[in-house]
Computed example of a mutant assay.
Amino acid sequence: MNKNPSYWPEQTLEAPSVSRARKRHAEQTKAVAAAISKITTAANKRLIDDARKRLPEYLLAAAAIYHTRGDRPAVAHWAFDEPSGTNVSATPGPGGRLVNLSAKMGDPVPRRIDDGRIGRALRFATGQVVEIDRSQLTPLSFGKDGDFSVAIWIRAPKGYSPSSADSIVSATFKTKDIWFIALRPGPYKGVYLRHYDDKKGAVDITPSTDQLPLLTDGKWHHLVVTSDRDADGVMYIDGKVVGRKAIGTVSSASDYGAPVSLQLGATYRSFAGDLDDVAIWDR
C-alpha cells in the first residue's frame, strides 16, 4: 500500500514549505500596500485617475493593432466604435487592403451602446442588420480553396432562446453557395457555422457539447471559427476549443469567389443581442 499521505483523501496535509510561502506572501502583500499608501499624493492620484479614464482608448488602440498586425492582417474588422450615424467602418489593414470597406446599418437601425467588450458595440433586435456595400466585398473572396476565420464578441440576453437558426453573420455568393454563423438550440448545441454548396449540400461546424447555456448567460463571449477548406473546421469559445468537424467534402466544393452579400446582425430569423469587434481573416 502506498504510504504517501497525498493518496489519502481524508487527510489534508500541507507541506511546511508551502505554509511558509503563504505566510511570506501575505506579509509582502501587506508591506506593499503600506508602502503605496505612504507615497500616494493628490498629484499622482490624479494621474492614476486620468489613466483609468483613458483606458478604453488604450484598449481600442490595442484591438486595432491586433487585427492589423503581421503579414496576414484581418481582411475585415468592424469595431462598431463610431459615436453616431448610420455608417460603420472597417479598420484598414497594411497596403490598403481594406480601403473603403464599410457597412451601413439597415432600417430600423441597431442601437449603439457604450458598454461593448472593447469600446462601443451594436445592439440588434428583430430585423436589424448591418449590410456591407456590395461593391466593397472583393477582400472577402475566398474562391474554392481559400481558408478563412471569423471572430466575434457576442452577448445574448440572459436566458435568450433562439427561435431557430438566429444568424449573426451571413455571406452569400453568386453561385448561391453560402456560409453563415447562427445561434441554434437542439442538435446544433447552441451555435454553428454552416458551409453550404448548392450541389453538395451542407456541413456544420458545431460544439461537441451544448454551449447555449454559456452563450445566453448575459455576458460577453469570444467566438472564433476557423475553416481549413479541405480539412477541418474548428470552433473556439473564450479561447478554448469546443468543437471540430471535417468539412472538406462540402467546403472545398463551395465557390466563395464572388460575394454578393455580407450581413452582420439579424440576417435571418430574429437574433436579439449585442455584437462587437467582428473580424474576418483569409487564413
Rank of each mutant, 00 (worst) to 15 (best):
M105N: 11
K104C: 05
E131Y: 08
A125P: 10
P92K: 01
V99R: 08
L122Q: 09
G93E: 01
F124I: 05
I113D: 07
G106L: 03
R117D: 13
S135G: 12
A90L: 06
R111A: 13
R112M: 08
I118N: 06
G106T: 04
G119C: 08
D133R: 14
M105W: 09
G93N: 03
S135K: 08
R120S: 12
V109K: 11
D115G: 10
G96E: 01
R120K: 15
L137W: 07
D107Y: 11
M105P: 14
S89P: 05
A103W: 09
Q128H: 00
R134T: 12
A90M: 07
R123I: 04
R111Y: 12
R111Q: 13
V129K: 14
S89G: 10
P108E: 08
G119R: 05
V129I: 12
R97L: 08
G93P: 02
F124H: 03
P108L: 09
K104H: 11
I132F: 14
L98G: 10
S89M: 12
P94T: 04
P94M: 03
R111F: 09
E131L: 14
L101Q: 10
G116K: 01
T138P: 06
I132R: 11
M105A: 10
R120Y: 04
V130D: 06
V99L: 10
S102E: 11
P108Q: 07
P94G: 06
K104Y: 11
A125N: 13
K104N: 09
P92D: 04
G119M: 06
I132D: 10
P139H: 01
R112T: 09
A121L: 02
Q136W: 02
I118V: 14
V129S: 11
L122N: 09
G127A: 03
P139A: 06
P94H: 04
V130S: 07
D133E: 14
Q128Y: 00
D133S: 15
I118M: 09
P108A: 08
L101T: 12
D107I: 12
I132A: 15
L137V: 08
V129M: 12
N100L: 15
L101I: 11
I113K: 11
L101S: 11
P94F: 01
R123H: 15
P92F: 00
L98Y: 01
R134H: 12
G106F: 04
P108S: 08
R117E: 14
T126E: 11
T91A: 05
